[in-house]
């Protein structure tokens, strides 16, 4: 474990807690894309298949349970909770996320570290996570007023993967044989997708104006 990875995990944890807090306290999911939340639940479900078979550390297992639990409960809140679901804007959250799942699955069947179920699922979860934010970014461009919590959620989600890139660089130089091309490329693509959001997020923060993404 290194400081970049710990900071990345804590930033990732903060992003899901910010979102859960928003939905649980103000009972609203306005501006939140259910599609992105469903994709993230699928990312964790396919990435943490080994949660009960390979014990790496208490930290690793606890964090996996938190990410699985939070992502599925956010999906439950937006789909089932009688008050929260009313604030879900399904007419705006129209990104066909199934068009993201299939190409990621096909790519995982072609490019993986080993042709085993778990490794293909691992590669699938990496490719899917790289594009999972797209429905949310599209929704933010459509809904003019982005509330602070949703903006913070997206920012933290992007920042966590950027910190992971520093972690991979650190591990590459400190650990022999630490080479994970698939993870590195997927993580880089994922972070680049946030680039324009980061730009507008910092602009709004610097000029102290409401965050607005160009349509």
């Amino acid at each position: 474990m290194n400081i970049f990875r710990l900071a990345g995990d804590m930033t990732h944890l903060a992003s899901v807690l910010v979102l859960l807090l928003k939905i649980h306290t103000i009972k609203s999911c306005a501006g939140v894309s259910l599609k992105t939340q469903e994709l993230y639940a699928l990312v964790f479900a396919t990435r943490y298949l080994d949660i009960f078979t390979d014990f790496i550390s208490l930290y690793n297992t606890v964090m996996k349970l938190i990410f699985l639990g939070s992502s599925f409960s956010i999906v439950w809140y937006i789909r089932r909770h009688k008050i929260v679901r009313r604030s879900y804007d399904k007419d705006q959250d129209t990104f066909r996320h199934y068009f993201l799942v299939l190409p990621c699955l096909l790519l995982a069947l072609v490019i993986h570290e080993k042709f085993t179920f778990r490794e293909v699922m691992w590669a699938f979860s990496l490719y899917l996570e790289a594009v999972a934010i797209l429905p949310q970014l599209v929704l933010l461009q459509r809904t003019r007023n982005i509330d602070n919590l949703t903006g913070q959620y997206v920012f933290l989600l992007g920042a966590y993967r950027a910190l992971y890139i520093l972690n991979w660089i650190y591990r590459y130089f400190t650990e022999p044989h630490f080479v994970h091309w698939i993870t590195w490329i997927a993580g880089l693509v994922q972070t680049l997708l946030y680039a324009d959001f980061f730009y507008y997020y910092f602009e709004s923060w610097k000029n102290n104006v409401k965050l607005q993404l160009p349509a």
Binding site: R5, D54, E113
Partner: peptide, 10 residues
């Protein structure tokens, strides 16, 4: 570890 790389990251 050579070859099969275990996944120890989240």
């Amino acid at each position: 570890k050579h070859g099969f790389q275990y996944h120890d990251e989240l």
